[in-house]
Computed example of a mutant assay.
Amino acid sequence: MRLDLTEKHFAERKVLGALVLQVERGQRIAVLGPSGIGKSTLLRIIAGLDREFSGRLSGEDRLAVVFQEPTLLPWRRALENITIPTGCDPALARQLMGEVGLAGREGQFPRQMSLGQQRRLALARAFAARPDILLMDEPFASLDAETAARMIDLTAALLDRSGAGLILVTHDAGEPARLGASAVTLSGQPARLQQAPPSPGV
């Protein structure tokens, strides 16, 4: 996957300036930056959800997205929340639910699950799509510290097992190292990518 971005506007405001971002299968990148800088906009462009930009997005990689909100189908049971969007076999969906700690909850509706469980279900759904590159938009935000730590470790294990690459959008400078990701920072007006400073103690 390669993005050669010239610029991105919202009305008259230029949000993103010229930048290049290239990620291959197995490679992990984390995009850091403050709220409102354009991190989620950049991820939406990469995911193909925002086509109103100047530049070129290329590559034949299969992508899957995990948003900050789980974006589940509330009228469908947990297992169907994996099989319907991805078209995967129910056996694979059950296997992934087991891997994320949701074995036995296949028949539950999202409203019957905690936020942490919903996030794990969304993670299982993403890996059911067998992505070459996983896109994650602040997926650990609003979770308590213990739940977030478990989610990060779980994500790292699934990435190791699948060999998928990663583009993570986050404001937490500690997350890239825990996921084995190289960090870059989105900064400036309009925002551009810069090398991130090393995390404390690294």
Rank of each mutant, 00 (worst) to 15 (best):
P90Y: 07
I37W: 09
Q68S: 14
L123N: 09
E175P: 00
E80W: 04
A91E: 15
R150C: 01
E106W: 06
G104L: 03
L5H: 00
A128F: 08
L179T: 02
L186G: 05
E52H: 09
E175D: 12
L193D: 15
R105N: 11
L72C: 01
P200T: 02
S54H: 15
D89H: 13
A78T: 11
E60H: 04
Q194K: 13
G165Q: 02
M1W: 01
R76P: 02
D4G: 01
V15N: 01
L3C: 03
V100H: 06
G98I: 08
I152C: 10
L3P: 04
M136L: 15
V20I: 11
L168A: 13
L79G: 14
D160N: 12
M113G: 01
S58N: 10
Q189M: 08
A91S: 14
Q195E: 15
L16T: 01
V15D: 02
L19P: 06
S199T: 04
A183E: 11
L186T: 09
S35W: 03
I37F: 03
G104E: 14
D61G: 10
V184F: 13
R2H: 14
E99F: 10
P197Y: 04
E52C: 02
F53H: 00
V66D: 11
S199F: 14
E52A: 14
E80V: 00
A93E: 12
F140H: 02
F10I: 09
L159F: 04
A141C: 09
P110D: 07
D89E: 14
A164D: 07
L143H: 03
D132H: 07
L121G: 05
E12L: 00
A145E: 15
G26S: 09
V100F: 08
L63H: 03
W75Q: 12
N81V: 06
P90A: 11
L102A: 06
A11E: 15
G33L: 09
D137Q: 02
L121A: 04
Q194C: 07
L79K: 05
V184D: 06
E7K: 08
E24S: 06
V15R: 02
S142C: 01
K8Y: 14
S199A: 15
L115M: 14
D160Y: 01
Q195V: 06
G188Y: 03
A126F: 03
L158Y: 13
D137N: 08
L42N: 06
P198R: 12
L154T: 06
T86K: 05
A128S: 12
M1P: 10
L102P: 07
L159D: 03
A122E: 14
A156D: 12
R161I: 09
A64H: 02
Q194S: 06
T71M: 13
L121P: 10
A181L: 05
I82A: 11
A141V: 13
T83K: 03
G48R: 04
L168W: 10
P74V: 04
Q108I: 00
R161N: 10
A64D: 05
I29G: 00
G59K: 01
A30Y: 03
A148V: 10
L43R: 03
K8L: 13
R76N: 09
R62A: 10
G116S: 00
L73W: 07
F10G: 02
Q27H: 02
L42A: 10
R120I: 03
T71L: 13
F140Y: 09
G201A: 10
G163P: 00
E175I: 11
A164V: 07
T83F: 01
R111V: 07
G36A: 04
K8H: 02
R25E: 15
D61F: 11
